[in-house]
Amino acid sequence: MADLSSFPITKLWPAANPDVIQLYSFPTPNGVKVSMMLEETGLAYEPHAVNITKNETWGPEYLALNPNGKIPAIIDPHGPGDKPLELFESGAILIYLAEKTGKFLSSDAATRYQTIQWVMFQMAAIGPMFGQVGFFHKFAGAAYEDKRPRDRYAAESKRLLGVLETRLEGRDWIMDDYSIADIATLGWVRNFIGFYDAGGLVDYASLKNVPAWLERGLARPAVQRGLDIPKRPS
């Protein structure tokens, strides 16, 4: 049985089974990337809901795992060399889990790096821009009389969706096969048109390839399960 007692986070979120991957997350577009990946790979894991609405990522126990105070993060009790490994940043976790299982990231070097570039596209562009639209359209920023910030981020989000639309022309997935690039991006596009209700800002209805790709992705049973893990506290 693995010993995770040296990780302060396990004092607040104890591991019922310390021999499996411990997931500390919340069902946001960033959080569900990892739960979807874990569901897709079939790896055994134990989810812990870290309630970001109550600032639970800013306590010393969580910050000892992720000094950036964001979800998701994991502890793999059987990391490289069969030693516990802690990781934060969803993109890094996706790459790690893909390499651990040999799934959703090609072993061909060129395809591998091209897949990673699309993961970075989501991390560096889609996530931050869509999140800003969410703030200025859905949350506190929606009350701002000056709509220039919202419109600036909406325009950039529209451009990014255009990049994705072009990439998906003649393709079912971002790469030739379903990969971590799709897993990284699905939750963000779903959230943008769903929870943020921002499709009208970017003329989402005019797109063809992105909506079809989103429908294909959301039809995957592992994606559906992952979108609801960990469950939001009632």
Rank of each mutant, 00 (worst) to 15 (best):
N191S: 14
L161Y: 15
G170A: 11
E145N: 12
R148T: 09
E86I: 00
E99K: 11
G194V: 00
F88H: 13
V133T: 10
F139W: 08
G162H: 02
Q132N: 06
A154Q: 06
A92F: 04
L186I: 09
L161M: 14
M129E: 08
L160F: 03
L161H: 11
A109F: 14
Y153R: 05
T115K: 13
S179T: 01
E86T: 07
I174C: 12
S106T: 03
G141V: 00
T111P: 08
T115G: 14
I95E: 09
L161T: 02
A140G: 13
V119C: 15
F130K: 10
Q114M: 09
F135C: 03
I93H: 14
E145V: 03
Y113L: 07
A92C: 08
F192E: 02
E99L: 02
F121E: 04
A109H: 11
E89W: 12
A184V: 02
P128V: 00
I126C: 14
M129D: 06
F136E: 03
V119G: 15
A125G: 15
M123W: 01
Y96D: 04
A125H: 13
M120G: 13
G131R: 08
G187L: 01
D177S: 12
K147E: 00
N191C: 10
R148Y: 11
A140H: 12
F192L: 08
G127D: 11
R112L: 03
M120L: 13
G141D: 01
I126R: 13
R148C: 04
A142M: 05
A125K: 13
R148V: 02
D177V: 00
